[in-house]
Amino acid sequence: MRAFRVAYDGRPYHGFQRQPNVPTVEDAIFDALRGLGVLAADAGAPDGYAAAGRTDAGVSAITQTVAFECPDWLTPRAFNGELPEHVRAWASADVHDAFHATHHATSRAYDYHLYAPTADVDRAAAALAKLEGTHDFADLTAASDDDTTRTVETATVVREGDVLRVHVRADGFLWELVRRLVALVRSVATGDRDLDAVDRALATEPLPDHERVGPAPPEPLVLVDATYPEVAFERDDEAATSATTVFESAHATAVSRARVTSALRDGVDAPSADTDDSPR
């Protein structure tokens, strides 16, 4: 059995887990294994297969972890030979036959890159501090699970220019928990809600529907860690370099596009003095 660390840009996909008739990251992984002859054409999944988590549509990952039975020659660089370029394996570890990538993760961590130039970072930090610890998060999830109690180990925020990077680590995450948590924190940080709104969201008494917060957009969310204390992943330098090159190229394209939209915004907001508005 081998576990792989996989990074991906989730924005072109309808989430990690397979769904009918739409592209998912899991489909890309299984298609690559079929192309390599590791997975039979008629097989649903490799023997022993499991993944660290099921990211939503548009959510990306640095350390998504998948484990399954495979031949010794399947290294991250060999895996990348069949994976699409925006899905990159970059590290691996041999694990025992009973290893389960979902159940054996002791914690997971996400970063949310929140564009919030006017938000008060101290108010955001105060809101996040209230969310640390063991709570019933029934009012901050779209899940219908009977057990909505989770332990948030750390919840922190740092300002990086116009962006607040919100970091949350927990023993497990409910559906949309991070995105709803971020939306709540943003509303407190911008003054739209008071700090007591966090306490009300964590209280035993359910919130009325008009007070519940919806999820923040998925695209700024990244799975940054899945922790396995007894597993030592070995970085594949060639595979990691391939991943860095792919994502650097995507970053350069995104920066260029952002500059164009900024120019459009600024041009419409403050037209230059020599603009000729006369009809032609």
Rank of each mutant, 00 (worst) to 15 (best):
R108E: 06
D72R: 14
G37I: 02
A52W: 08
V121D: 09
S92C: 13
E69F: 12
A32Q: 07
T55P: 13
G35K: 12
A78G: 06
D94K: 09
T118S: 14
A61L: 08
A43R: 10
P117I: 02
F99M: 03
D111L: 04
A116W: 07
T65S: 05
A41P: 02
H96M: 09
F79W: 15
A52R: 05
F30E: 06
R108M: 05
R54M: 13
T65N: 04
L83C: 05
H113Q: 08
A101I: 01
T63W: 14
A119N: 05
S107F: 05
D42H: 04
G48H: 09
A109F: 08
Y110L: 01
I29P: 07
F68P: 14
D31G: 03
V121I: 15
L33C: 07
C70M: 10
G37M: 07
A52G: 14
L74R: 07
A40P: 07
R54L: 09
S92R: 08
D42C: 00
A40S: 08
L33I: 04
A89M: 02
S92G: 09
H100F: 11
G81K: 14
E85I: 04
A98N: 08
H104W: 11
A78D: 07
L39M: 01
H86E: 09
V87L: 02
W90Y: 10
F30C: 11
Y112V: 00
P71N: 05
H96C: 14
P71A: 03
A98F: 11
S92K: 04
P84F: 04
A41L: 06
D42I: 00
A78Q: 15
V66H: 13
T106W: 13
V87R: 01
C70I: 04
H86C: 10
V121P: 07
V87Q: 02
V87D: 02
T75C: 10
H113F: 14
A51K: 08
Q64H: 11
T63A: 15
P84G: 04
R54C: 13
A67E: 12
G81N: 12
A50L: 04
G37L: 03
R108G: 15
Y115V: 10
L33E: 09
A67Q: 13
L33S: 08
H86I: 01
D97W: 14
L74Y: 12
A78V: 15
W90P: 01
Y115I: 06
A67C: 13
H113L: 10
Y49H: 08
D122K: 12
A105Y: 10
A43L: 11
L39N: 03
G81P: 09
A98L: 10
I29R: 12
Y49V: 06
G53K: 06
A32C: 14
P76V: 00
D122H: 14
R54T: 12
T63V: 07
A40Y: 01
V66C: 14
A119D: 06
A41Q: 11
A93R: 14
A116K: 02
V66I: 13
G37P: 11
F30Y: 15
D94Q: 12
A116D: 03
D42Q: 03
A57E: 04
P71W: 10
S92A: 15
D31K: 15
R77G: 00
